[in-house]
Write a protein that binds this DNA or RNA. Sequence first.
DNA 1: TTGTTTTATGAAATCAGTTTCATAACCATC
DNA 2: GATGGTTATGAAACTGATTTCATAAAACAA
Lengths: 330, 330
Amino acid sequence: MATISDVAERTGLSKATVSRVINNHPYISKEKRELVYKAMEELGYQPNPSARRLRGQLTNTIGVIVPRIVNPFFSYLVDALEQVAYENNYQVLMFQSDEKKDKELYFLNLLKTKQVDGLIMTAIENEREVIESYTRFGPILFCNEYLSQSEIPVVRVDQSKAAYIGTKHLLDRGYRKIAYCTGGLFVDDGKDKDRNIGFQKALNDHQININTAWVFINKHTIEDGRHVMRQIAGMNEKPDAIFTGSDEIAAGVILEAKSLGMKIPEDLAVMGFDDQPIAEMIDPALTTIQQPIKEMGTISVDMLLRLLKNQPLDQKHKELSVELVIRSST
Amino acid sequence: MATISDVAERTGLSKATVSRVINNHPYISKEKRELVYKAMEELGYQPNPSARRLRGQLTNTIGVIVPRIVNPFFSYLVDALEQVAYENNYQVLMFQSDEKKDKELYFLNLLKTKQVDGLIMTAIENEREVIESYTRFGPILFCNEYLSQSEIPVVRVDQSKAAYIGTKHLLDRGYRKIAYCTGGLFVDDGKDKDRNIGFQKALNDHQININTAWVFINKHTIEDGRHVMRQIAGMNEKPDAIFTGSDEIAAGVILEAKSLGMKIPEDLAVMGFDDQPIAEMIDPALTTIQQPIKEMGTISVDMLLRLLKNQPLDQKHKELSVELVIRSST
DNA sequence: TTGTTTTATGAAATCAGTTTCATAACCATC
DNA sequence: GATGGTTATGAAACTGATTTCATAAAACAA
């Protein structure tokens, strides 16, 4: 591997001058500049990122933490983030938290040890204070998930409205006994709380109380959905509709319902969330809430790059809108 | 950020001794060792990876390149790779090639500039010579995709057998007019060629010739599948079965067939590949070929770590077996 | 008691860049 | 002709670790 000294030697210049050429400093004669470019080309020289980082330079890497990449919502989100990052000459270091605090901490330390310039967090496991303590090492951005009391910038969709229009749709169709499925364990903050609020508001509009037996927490996967359906099947008083936290849960509910001989939506209307490819694929096709994933990714990277360049943000809290996609499951 | 000098100062020792403690060198008194640990703890000290890398140390990062992360096969593979890597104290730098040569080159350069210790390539865009020229910067491993003439180690499934048992299954069910769908553009090497061979062999066993009108190349997505189905629908002589390159293509075929009023498998038997979650989800459920993704990931990381530690490999070419999963689409 | 290992530690070099400080030539201004 | 700003470049310091070389004390052998 050629080093900057090799380039300096070949051109008869000093390392300092070569470095200036590389970094586009002013006051370099055109003549020397071209000499350096030529030598770099000939030697196949590429600056060593570790050495640059050591001098406090940027790494041109942003970290993205997701709960699980196999969840299509997040793989599409990472896809979008990576595309935009690449266009801006940034790499993405992807990391799964697996919903574990220690993995998230390991990840946050990448910022501390300057392995990434900034972080995009699409999941939050640790306490607010812990995460905020890392902001002194570099910019952090919440994407999708967030903490309401935090000063950390956020890009997210209006989850409360999303849940509201979803639930309202079920109510408009005449369903009154609505079950509710959420991903959160403790729904005391962030997107799950917002969804809760939207759901409650819609019910309140119709003077309906939530039946706590019909509330399922910490559900994420297809298997979780199947499990929920089995629980419902075993109930004396069954709901006539279910609002789920993701298309995957909804798909699980439908699959299990079918194997139990139930009809969707006649016996149970099912509402998804995300509008993943499976929403169209499953029979009956899922009514669901479409999230602007590509847009979230684009805006998130843009905002983070702004923070990295110390440019001002027009808003610290960017809220995107969602759309109801009506298909056959409701 | 605390540095090694801070730790040295606090303990009254030299940087050299502190470094020795960190790296478990011999000949350190228990007393000093504990002193250093205590100081590191108190200062929240963490070694700066850039500085370590600069001294030629390993980065504890492996790079993984995939064509597209939104393809569930690859998101499951990356998931597996990341899990195993994390258990071994390694991070994963994930990268999408988007099937573009220049993105792949950019990625290969991460190895050259020592940003990753080794690479796992699950897609190959550039010529053999190009990729092999990078092996002098660090170990490269092919996972899933590969080049037959190359010296680069490979972890893959027996694609030829996979296609053979899949096609044989169709033949056993009595289908004789079998269409074929592949991902490759030029099927002249690697996994697509192997599948080809397996497909041909199965047909040869029954003295059937391939109808080239029924061969579709460069197909990957659900949309591609729909497109294929539309093409088939427009044919005078239609196939009675189709062997596809992924469950997604198969799902697209089924969805489009249904919307065209065709019955699966009566009008067209559909064979998937991968056994993704959607295989179970779609109606009719897909007959498909299950790939041992988790195992591929585990073995790949193990092999790469061996290469990194200069340990010998028991085999340079690890081949895993696949299984036929029979459901209702055939 | 002397000589040789073994154990334990530190000073300084090293990795490959960037940045500070110094300097010199050139041009303009008073 | 002295002063001052702009342009252009290099020597050396610096980033934060690891490693080599040197050295001294302790342990062991002759």
